[in-house]
């Protein structure tokens, strides 16, 4: 595993993603989601909204790094708000 150059922050990041995916799978089994059409005009399930949230968060973080000099954790706050909006309205 040494060749993969693991660090604690990246390991925690992947563990969080894996945990979120597992939680989504459990949620889907226990409370199956049904498709709905939101503000984007596309039909989405809970998994789609999760994917959009993750992808959007990656771009929010990149934009934050590229455009601002503010601490990165504020970007995570923006991502959390974005994810809430996606799950609520998309």
């Amino acid at each position: 595993m040494e060749w993969m150059a693991w660090t604690w922050p990246t390991a925690l990041f992947f563990a969080a993603i894996a945990a979120a995916l597992a939680a989504m799978a459990v949620l889907h089994v226990k409370y199956p989601s049904s498709p709905r059409t939101g503000v984007l005009g596309i039909e989405t399930m809970r998994g789609d909204r999760f994917f959009i949230s993750l992808l959007g968060s990656a771009f929010i973080n990149l934009a934050w790094i590229g455009l601002l000099d503010a601490p990165q954790y504020w970007a995570l706050v923006v991502c959390a708000v974005f994810a809430f909006c996606v799950f609520r309205w998309v």
Partner: peptide, 11 residues
């Protein structure tokens, strides 16, 4: 995963 790990480090 390896690429992500590399992207935060210098070698």
């Amino acid at each position: 995963m390896t690429v992500v790990n590399y992207s935060f480090q210098d070698s």
